[in-house]
Measured scan of single mutants.
Amino acid sequence: MDVFMKGLSKAKEGVVAAAEKTKQGVAEAAGKTKEGVLYVGSKTKEGVVHGVATVAEKTKEQVTNVGGAVVTGVTAVAQKTVEGAGSIAAATGFVKKDQLGKNEEGAPQEGILEDMPVDPDNEAYEMPSEEGYQDYEPEA
């Protein structure tokens, strides 16, 4: 019985440690998101679009440190934060509304985080759909 109880105690310690790591990862992701939003706020009209992409990228980098179902929630929060940063930029006159959601080359930025393969159960990952990809044929 002692062996059984000791095993359960060790398992509990492992769960607590994993929860603490997840909590730490979420806190880091939130900190990076805040950094990115402050970065966007300090940019001029020309830099705002690039700044919004930076927020998304920093958040995406930190999301990889967070495991399990938390990833889905962090990704949703990050996307809403990026959308909010863009709205703030438009409201303050840093950028025109028609410039939001495009990178410096004018290509749409939507789907940055949505296409990231995420499995809350950590069982399997699927690649994003290939609808947006084109076949590449090298020139002879």
Rank of each mutant, 00 (worst) to 15 (best):
K23Y: 08
D2K: 02
V70P: 02
V40F: 14
H50C: 10
S9P: 00
A29S: 04
P128N: 11
V77F: 14
K97G: 13
A78E: 03
S9V: 02
G7P: 02
M5V: 09
K45G: 06
V63F: 11
E130S: 12
A56R: 13
T92E: 06
K10M: 03
V48T: 03
M116T: 03
T75H: 04
N103G: 13
V77G: 04
G93Q: 06
V82E: 05
V15N: 00
K60T: 06
A89S: 07
K6H: 04
D115E: 10
E105A: 09
G51E: 01
Q62Y: 02
E20M: 06
G25W: 08
K21R: 05
E61M: 04
V70T: 04
K32E: 00
Q99F: 11
A91K: 10
T75V: 13
G86M: 02
K80Y: 05
H50G: 09
V15C: 05
S129Q: 04
G25K: 13
G132A: 13
D119A: 02
E104M: 03
V82L: 15
G47I: 09
N122V: 09
A11K: 00
E28A: 05
T75Q: 08
G31E: 02
D135Y: 12
Y125H: 11
E20H: 14
A69L: 01
N65G: 06
Y136F: 14
V71A: 06
I88T: 06
N122A: 11
S87E: 01
L38P: 00
K12I: 12
A69N: 11
A11R: 01
L113T: 06
T81Q: 04
A76H: 11
S129A: 11
G7A: 04
G132P: 07
Q79G: 09
Q109P: 15
A11V: 12
S9R: 11
Y133T: 12
D121I: 10
E13F: 08
V40P: 00
E114N: 07
T44Y: 08
G67A: 06
E126N: 08
V55C: 11
G36M: 11
G86Y: 05
A78H: 07
H50T: 11
Y39Q: 08
D2V: 02
T64N: 06
E131M: 01
E137A: 15
Q79R: 01
G7K: 01
V74G: 04
D115Y: 04
A53Q: 00
V40I: 01
V49P: 03
T54I: 14
T81W: 09
A78V: 07
T72Q: 03
E104K: 00
A69W: 12
G14P: 01
G36Q: 04
E57K: 09
Y39T: 12
S9Q: 07
S87P: 00
K43P: 00
A76L: 12
H50A: 03
A89K: 09
T81N: 01
K60I: 08
P108A: 11
S87H: 08
E126V: 02
G25M: 15
V95N: 14
G41R: 09
V52D: 01
A17S: 10
T44G: 11
N122E: 02
V82P: 04
V16F: 13
Q24P: 05
K60A: 07
L100P: 01
V52R: 03
T92Q: 14
V71L: 09
E105Q: 14
G14D: 12
L8C: 01
A30F: 03
V52E: 00
A107K: 09
S9A: 03
G47A: 15
A19I: 15
Y136M: 12
T81D: 04
E123G: 13
A107G: 05
T59P: 01
Y125R: 04
P120N: 05
M5L: 02
E104N: 07
T92M: 09
G93A: 01
A53V: 11
V15S: 00
E123V: 12
E139G: 10
K58Y: 14
K12S: 07
E20W: 11
D2P: 01
E28G: 06
A91W: 13
G73E: 03
Q62C: 10
D121M: 06
V118H: 12
T72L: 14
Y125K: 10
A19M: 15
E123K: 14
V37Y: 00
E126R: 02
V82N: 04
A29P: 00
K43C: 11
V3C: 09
K80C: 06
K34T: 05
M5E: 01
A29E: 01
V26Q: 00
V37F: 11
V48M: 09
T81I: 08
E131F: 05
V48C: 07
V48H: 01
V49M: 14
F4Y: 14
V26N: 00
P120T: 04
M1C: 00
Y125E: 13
E126F: 08
V82W: 01
E61D: 07
M127R: 08
N122W: 02
A29Q: 03
K58T: 12
A85W: 03
V3E: 01
Y125S: 14
Q79W: 15
D135Q: 15
Q134N: 04
G25L: 13
V15W: 10
Q109D: 13
K58W: 02
V82Y: 05
D115L: 09
V52M: 02
A107H: 10
K80F: 14
F94D: 11
V82S: 08
Q99K: 09
V55L: 09
G86I: 11
G73R: 13
D135C: 09
K6G: 01
T54F: 15
K96V: 15
P138M: 12
Q62I: 06
F94Y: 14
D119S: 03
V3Q: 03
T72A: 13
K10P: 00
M5D: 00
T59E: 01
V3P: 00
M116Y: 09
G68C: 14
A69E: 06
G7Q: 11
G25C: 15
A85S: 05
E130Y: 09
T59F: 15
G86K: 09
I88H: 06
T75R: 07
A124S: 13
G84Q: 13
K12R: 02
K96R: 04
A89Y: 13
G132K: 14
K60R: 12
A19E: 00
L113M: 05
I112W: 10
T59H: 02
S42E: 11
M1L: 03
A140S: 13
V77M: 15
G41I: 06
V66H: 07
G93F: 10
V66R: 01
T81V: 10
K102H: 09
E130A: 11
